[in-house]
């Protein structure tokens, strides 16, 4: 997995310490710590993982192993408007693939990528739980239901 080199500021290191402290630096709370850290930083670059390992007194390999195991954690920053296409079965049989292809075509990026201007990132998710509205697309917190490939342009225009 490619990652971005970042240099943590002192205040950011303090923030990580504070998060770990709130879970009593308990190694068993690693996943909760990562949730909090990702909530704060938006993603989990290697430097943040190293700091967490230091605080919880576990190896960086262990932290990295957990980060890469779970799909919720990401080592790459997301776009300003993260786009998630539901590829759960209900959405799949109602044409999610075509909708996804249209997003890829218009934004000219692949799943997992962010546009050069940093505005949009594209990912797939498993099930939003709104199968009645299939196919479903989420941009940020907003859910778009019954999306057709033709409607993709209009949706993106809302964010321009």
């Amino acid at each position: 997995m490619s990652s971005i080199k970042v240099e943590l500021k002192q205040c950011e290191i303090d923030k990580i310490k504070e998060i770990c402290q709130s879970f009593n630096n308990e190694p068993g709370e690693l996943i909760n710590v990562l949730h909090k850290a990702q909530g704060h930083f938006g993603y989990l670059p290697a430097e943040v993982q190293e700091e967490i390992a230091l605080e919880l007194k576990i190896s960086v390999a262990k932290v990295y192993g957990v980060v890469t195991f779970y799909s919720f954690f990401t080592m790459l920053p997301k776009g300003l408007h993260p786009i998630s296409i539901c590829t759960g079965t209900a959405c799949y049989v109602r044409g999610a693939e075509k909708v996804l292809d249209e997003f890829k075509r218009i934004l000219n990026i692949q799943v997992g990528d962010t546009t050069k201007d940093g505005r949009f990132s594209l990912s797939c998710l498993r099930c939003v739980g709104a199968c009645g509205l299939a196919p479903v697309v989420m941009i940020g917190e907003k859910v778009y239901g019954r999306v057709s490939p033709d409607g993709v342009k209009d949706i993106l225009n809302e964010y321009s």
């Binding site: 068993g28 909760n32 949730h35 195991f69 779970y70 799909s71 919720f72 954690f73 498993r126």
Partner: peptide, 25 residues
């Protein structure tokens, strides 16, 4: 509460327990 982080295999009970303990599921 313990939060999952997106891993289908955690539906298996031993994997779920490892995940709750902070490990890979």
């Amino acid at each position: 509460l313990r939060y999952g982080a997106g891993a289908f295999v955690c539906g298996e009970e031993t994997a779920l327990i490892h995940s709750m303990e902070g490990h890979r599921g």
